[in-house]
Design a protein around this nucleic acid. Structure first.
Lengths: 198, 198
DNA sequence: TGCCAGAAACCGACCGGTCGGTATGTCACT
DNA sequence: AGTGACATACCGACCGGTCGGTTTCTGGCA
């Protein structure tokens, strides 16, 4: 259920998925007929239903690729074993950059997450929770080591930080006034400032 | 277009609106047939279309009541003329409390905001922007008066703070472990800590 | 007060259109 | 001749909105 499937590699599958991603982000899941996905990907309905079980299956694939990437980024930083301050900063900056770069996936994710069936929803929630807990763990470690203040509960800090990230799809534009890297640095510094305040 | 309509006061209208709100929050806008709104409100389809122009009109009414309340809260605090620190704190705390109390409206708002037609979208965006700008103005005032640090741009602080609030519908539960008032205080203090850090 | 006419407040069967999904066929390649 | 990879025509369920009709309210007038 979780992952068993081999990586989607057929070019047809990739075309379908990227067309679906773009259209779902632009017009919403319910506002996008399967027929229009098919046309945008320049395939036929038969081809789509040959590779995917259902329209919902397209959604799940989109979610999965997003979350898998986020978890991989997080694990890589944690494995690097940086001190808490640098670890938190790196995770946040990378998360914001990655979200900016894949803003369509993030948009679809936040807008349509309620459409998953129970099994898929459970899998997605478990992955998100794992991210949340690992991030919080980094903050808790910093508190134990005395580099972060204990004024605000770690959970609340995570809620604020991830809240900003998950809200990005509603306002972020790649051609906006501020480059993502600059934004990421500002947000990370602001969060660290709150974390380090006496 | 903006507001002209007298306040909805007929009990039938209120029943329809509150049934729609509950169902939209629970199953999503597209997942809720007009027929089921009608049944939940114990009226007929004729009655619904007598009072409302369309299914989308229900959405707009929900949005409007949410934003109108937020702006009224904000204006009240600004009118009180508190010093920046207290003003920012009060606005944030009230916004979080209000969002927690009307979490269904917030949920529908964030999830289905793309469904509005151009005119309604424009009106809603203008109101949201007004909130955003006014909030940012409070922070800028604090910077001018020297009580807030200028390390992080005011705009970025607003993005973080409102990001947390707008993300609440995806995780907040009234029966959760932490009372909304406590959460609000923690978040406000955390943001202020970042704002006041040297 | 009694009555009536028009307006407002509904009622609910029905329609036109859309959409996800399927059934069946074809064809290249092994 | 069997199999995977499509192609295409089509189905049936569903849904938003309409529309002709009915009931209820309201106010003016004798």
């Amino acid at each position: 259920m979780a992952d068993g499937r081999p990586v989607r590699q057929s070019p047809v599958e990739r075309r379908i998925l990227s067309a679906a991603l773009r259209l779902f982000a632009e017009r919403g899941f319910d506002g996008t007929p399967v027929q229009s996905v098919v046309e945008a990907a320049a395939v036929t309905k038969g081809a789509l239903y040959h590779y995917f079980d259902s329209k919902d299956d397209l959604l799940y694939e989109i979610y999965h690729s997003l979350i898998a990437r986020q978890l991989a980024d997080l694990d890589r930083v944690i494995a690097a074993g940086l001190p808490p301050r640098e670890a938190v900063r790196t995770v946040l900056v990378e998360l914001i950059l990655s979200t900016a770069e894949h803003i369509d996936e993030a948009k679809v994710f936040t807008r349509e997450s309620h459409r998953l069936d129970d099994a898929a929803m459970h899998a997605v929630r478990a992955d998100r929770r794992r991210y949340h807990v690992a991030f919080r763990g980094l903050i808790e470690q910093g508190r134990r080591e005395g580099v972060f203040s204990t004024a605000t509960p770690a959970e609340t800090v995570v809620i604020v930080a991830l809240g900003m990230v998950n809200q990005m799809p509603s306002w972020y534009r790649a051609d906006g006034p501020k480059p993502a890297a600059e934004l990421a640095a500002e947000v990370a510094d602001f969060v660290l400032a709150g974390l380090e305040a006496k």
